[in-house]
Amino acid sequence: MVGNDIVDLQLAKVQSNWQRKGYLEKVFNENERLLISSAENPDVIVWLLWSMKEAAYKIHNRVNGIREYAPKKLNCFIVPKVDLTRGRVNIDGAVYFTKSSINSAYLHTISSSIQHQIDAIKISIYEFPNHPSKYKDKNPGCISHHGKYLALAY
């Protein structure tokens, strides 16, 4: 099973003010907040961790049928100085592996419960207005939409 999540970084800038009082405390645990506060570019780390949580939740939610808004239950692990793009998310004893691509326009994370399968996941990212009209016919394993971007993971 595959999960994914895309963040349009331009839109995120205007849509969300994570510097608002109390915001980070509702979403991120202490370790994650330390990663953010010690980062050169905290904006990227905020959305990287956010997309890791979302991508992991998308699998977890389908496996367990639990729908809830509990971002703090999803615990992200990355080694920031070594490789930002490979990570792990733990929730309720389950582990999901993540791989992210980061550029100045968007941040996209895919997730899998099986570590070696993460590199076999195929990704298609479309920028508006070039979204394929019948993308659901392509039977993607997971779909994510944000701002200008549509991301399909197979």
Binding site: Q15, K21, K26, W50, Y69, K73
Partner: peptide, 29 residues
């Protein structure tokens, strides 16, 4: 947008002068 749900929770806390714990927030869908 799921990132804005946090804003809604924070706005509710301010408007109603209450504190919403994580377990309560989990149900606020």
């Amino acid at each position: 947008n799921s990132a804005n749900l946090v804003d809604i929770v924070l706005d509710i806390e301010e408007r109603f002068k209450i504190e919403i714990d994580n377990d309560s927030m989990a149900k606020m869908l």
